[in-house]
Amino acid sequence: MDTTTRPATDGAWTQGDRAKAAAQLMLGWVALLWVIEAVDFATGHALDWYGILPRDADGLGGILTAPFLHFGFGHVAANSVPLLVFGFVAALSGIRHFLAVSALIILADGIGIWLIAPPNTMTAGASGLIFGLFGYLVVRGFVERRALGIAVGVVIAAIWGGSFFLGILPTNTEVSWQGHLCGLAAGVVTALYFRRPAPRPPALLS
């Protein structure tokens, strides 16, 4: 029985390369949120008006800008760690794949907020994307039938599941539970949409 080892393709990324790129991307992403909030603070919160205005045509543009805006430094601080962690884990599968996943979550979450959020409100913040990435990571391993992905999803659910469940309850009027709920649903749907084929067992050679 003979086997051969296939040489690595020139330019192929190693797991270390992927981890470094994922870390750089998410550190830069979170840093950008802080810079935007600093600009918002310096301009007297002029950027707050670029959030999502429910069922208002002028608020449709906020679907794309709202995830990058926050209502104060405490707000962006609360979102920084979970975004950094979930984004890093999700981006380990590939930067382009992660960006596509994030774009779909942002779009679906924003449309959901625009449709169901209470009137005369303004919604902004990265929490919708965070809830989406949470749902995506928890479900992805199961739909792809990958042991590592399942383990990651179980760990994430065990650590953050309780607080995320509370975040989607309509009794919590201090946050946009609509944005959290829409983000979570978007993440689950995204995991189903972007699912990769389950790994096949290696062929037996003789």
Rank of each mutant, 00 (worst) to 15 (best):
P82Q: 09
F98K: 01
A57Y: 07
G59K: 06
P82V: 13
F98N: 09
D58F: 12
V89P: 00
V81H: 05
A66K: 00
T65Q: 13
H97Y: 08
L92D: 10
I63W: 06
H75M: 05
F71S: 14
F88C: 06
L92N: 00
F68V: 02
I95T: 14
R55P: 11
A90D: 06
P82I: 09
L69Y: 01
G94A: 03
A78D: 08
G74R: 07
A66P: 08
F86W: 08
F68N: 02
G72D: 14
G94F: 01
G94S: 01
F68I: 00
P82T: 14
V76F: 06
L92Y: 03
F71A: 15
F73W: 14
F71T: 14
S80E: 08
F68K: 03
A66N: 07
G72R: 05
S80G: 15
A78H: 03
L83I: 03
R55T: 11
P54V: 00
P54Q: 10
L64F: 15
P67S: 04
I63V: 15
T65C: 09
G62N: 11
L69F: 05
V89S: 01
L69T: 03
F86K: 08
P67A: 00
N79R: 04
I63P: 07
N79I: 05
F88G: 04
F98C: 05
G72M: 03
D56E: 15
V89N: 00
L60V: 12
R96I: 02
V81P: 02
N79H: 04
G87W: 00
V81K: 02
D56N: 15
G61D: 13
N79T: 11
V76Y: 00
I63Y: 04
V89A: 03
V89T: 03
T65E: 10
L99W: 10
S80K: 12
G59T: 06
T65P: 03
I63G: 09
F98G: 06
V85D: 04
F73H: 14
L84H: 06
L99Q: 14
A78N: 14
L83K: 04
N79F: 07
L60Q: 08
F86G: 05
L84R: 12
L69K: 01
D56H: 07
L99Y: 04
T65D: 09
F71R: 12
L92F: 06
D56Y: 00
L92W: 09
A66M: 06
S80D: 12
D56L: 02
G74N: 11
A90T: 03
P82N: 03
G61S: 07
F86I: 05
P82C: 07
F88D: 11
S80Q: 06
R55D: 14
I95Y: 09
V76N: 13
A90K: 05
R96D: 08
I63D: 08
I63F: 07
H97D: 15
F71C: 06
P67N: 10
S80N: 10
G74I: 03
L83G: 08
G59M: 11
L84A: 12
A78M: 13
F73N: 13
D56F: 02
A77M: 15
I63C: 10
G72F: 06
T65S: 14
L84I: 12
L84V: 10
D58H: 13
F88I: 01
F88T: 13
L60G: 10
F98L: 02
R96W: 05
F71D: 12
G94H: 12
